[in-house]
Every structure is written in C-alpha cells, then in structure tokens.
Design a protein around this nucleic acid. Structure first.
Lengths: 109, 109
DNA sequence: TTAATAGTCAAGTAAATACTTCAGTAATTC
DNA sequence: GAATTACTGAAGTATTTACTTGACTATTAA
C-alpha cells in the first residue's frame, strides 16, 4: 500500500526545505540511490532517508528497493499538483485585473 | 525600502503553511484589509500580521497602509518564481525520459 | 565465512515556528 | 474630545522540525 496522498500542503511543505529541494533538483537529472544522494549533502544517511520519506509521502519522489539498494526517482504527481494550484490562484487574480481594466475603460468613454 | 527578496526557498516555505495558503487563496479573489483577512481565520490579528510579513518578504503579497487600514493584494512575483522552478525541474525530467525512450527505440531496430 | 556495503529503526536534542497575551499608537467616528 | 477601530511591537510558550547517535538487518563482495 503506497502512502502517496499528494495533497497540496504536503507538497509545498516538502519543497520548503532546502535539502529536500536539492534532492528534487538532483533527481530531476535522473534516478539515484539513497547513499549517492547523501554523498554531496553534508548530513547523515539517516537524515536523507527521513527527507525521502516525506518526499515520497508528498508524491514528489518514488523509491523502490532492489536488493540492498533503494533507487529514487522524481515523480511528476507532486510537481503537477503544485503547478496546478499556483496556476489556479494566478488565473483568478489575472482575470480579476482584466475585469477591472474593462470597467476603467468603460468609465473613460 | 522593500524587503522583497523573492527567493524560491522563501516562497515554498511560505506556501507550506495552511493559514498562509488560505490568505493567498482569499487574496486571489481581490484585495482585502488585514482585519477582514483575520475574520474567518481562527487566530488573532497579530498572528495574521506575522503571516503577512512573511508573505510580503517572499514576494507573494504586497501590502500598503492608507490611513489606519493596511490593504493586502496578491503579487505575481512569488507565484511566478515557484511556477518557474517547478517547470524547470519537470522539463529536465521529461526531457530525460524522452532521451531514454529514443535510446530504447533505437535498440529495438 | 568474513567483511563491507546499503539502508532501517528508535530515541534524543537543539533550533525554528506558529501561535499567544498584553501594552502600545495612530486614524476615524460619535 | 472621548470612544472605537485598525493595526503594531515585544516577549513568552508549546509544538514541530531537522538533525544526530548508536544499534540493528539484510545483501553483496572478497
């Protein structure tokens, strides 16, 4: 059973941490194992694993263990959700500005 | 002097909190004063003002005080930055999947 | 079979965060 | 000019968070 309830809160919270963003950035270039992921980051493997759990729960990353190595790869679900939320707010706002512009233009006549 | 260094870390961190997201959602429908913003939220005015400061610093919201009332409105800078970051990671990842697909197709020949 | 590698689990800690209260100040309204 | 409204600032608190250490398990390599 996958615990991937990709709600918008989890996604933004996950992306709010610099270490987790670094992980996502790395994974956008291709799949990597946990220890290779931990290498350049100045924290313990345990800490990386904890971040990965959060990233997985938020639908930003998918991991799979084969033998003793767990391979991590980017999952688009999380990013899509965030993109969608942002797009919605933005279009609401821009639509409002448009209406305002029309009203002002009408008044000028 | 405006303290609007809209870096990606601040933006995602700001959007990670449910109260701040509620504020952004409300403001996407149009400008609102601080006290009207605090109304439906079950927290004090002070707390709302603290969230607003963070939102302003992250480039998601712009506020302006006229008389005794501070009016808040959505600012696109923050949202744009987040949208851009997400788009970049996503396109890197999708481009990689494309190349992988091509390689596999070539091998089939 | 032994040693090394890759990761997991549980428990603890220090710092960050989201609040609160209380005491202001300045702008309106009565 | 007195009361009300709309915030602002400082200081404190409880919870969450990012991290650590140390002991453990499984897989692979020598």
């Amino acid at each position: 059973m996958r615990n991937t309830k990709a709600n918008i809160g989890r996604v933004f919270h996950a992306l709010g941490d610099p270490t987790r963003r670094a992980i996502v950035e790395k994974l956008s270039q291709g799949p990597v194992s946990v220890s290779r992921l931990a290498g350049p980051l100045a924290i313990t493997l345990t800490a990386v694993a904890q971040h990965l759990q959060l990233l997985e729960e938020s639908g930003l990353v998918h991991t799979e263990k084969v033998g003793r190595v767990r391979t991590c790869r980017l999952e688009t679900a999380g990013l899509s959700l965030a993109e969608q939320w942002i797009g919605e707010r933005r279009s609401l706002w821009e639509c409002r500005l448009d209406r305002l512009g029309h009203l002002l233009a009408e008044e000028e006549e």
